[in-house]
Design a protein around this nucleic acid. Structure first.
Lengths: 108, 108
DNA sequence: TTCATACTTCAAATATTATTGAAATATAGA
DNA sequence: TCTATATTTCAATAATATTTGAAGTATGAA
């Protein structure tokens, strides 16, 4: 994870619909969720949802896999974890902002 | 920290110049940095920098304090920490994405 | 094949953000 | 007060992102 990757991932998460989608996917089981299910759950039109899912996939925060007629979207937890690690490592540069938890690195 | 606060903070960080500014402020000492110093260090025109600093302040990720003729901008580490905590808490919902570090909460 | 379902891409409108010079404001020192 | 420095706000433009219906593509079932 470098600065531009981080900016890209942050941009992907910096939207109400996309953060909701990501959180919903995290809450879904290992099979992930289909666009139809997400569309119904979050009340987002299919076209709009498709646009946002593409953004998330493009930022590597979500993966897709086709299973028959359905697509299954899943959160890319390792990438999210890398983002959290990057932010943690660069928000204090070795100094602790909260002494009691100093040097603990962010993970999800 | 709630969803909309998180989106706001993420949006503030989701820009190359602003992430650079934040990181630079984190690296600066407790006196923070003035716009002139940031402008020189990052080679960003004063007007553009002022726009981005306002965004960061508005998102509570940075604080300002006037000292004589200068302004001192400092990172609001507690708020950054709250953002990391929110993301950590909501990216796995109790499940570990990386077993060896499970349940460790993100902090900076 | 044909039909229905699941999704995506296209396209065009709308909305939001970013950039920057010029002008304005604030402070401090002479 | 007058002047210089520090920084912001204004205003106009340029660039990007978002939304959504309509049309297209892919798959599976009949």
């Amino acid at each position: 994870m470098n600065e531009s990757t981080a900016v890209f991932a942050l941009s992907a998460l910096a939207h109400e619909a996309r953060l909701k989608v990501f959180r919903t996917l995290v809450g879904s089981g290992p099979t992930g969720m289909t666009p139809s299910a997400l569309s119904a759950a979050l009340d987002i039109p299919a076209t709009t949802l498709s646009f946002h899912l593409k953004e998330l996939v493009h930022a590597d925060l979500v993966t897709v896999e086709r299973q028959g007629r359905n697509l299954h979207y899943r959160p890319a937890l390792a990438h999210m974890n890398a983002l959290l690690g990057y932010l943690t490592d660069h928000c204090c540069q070795g100094q602790a902002c909260i002494p009691s938890v100093r040097k603990r690195r962010a993970t999800c």
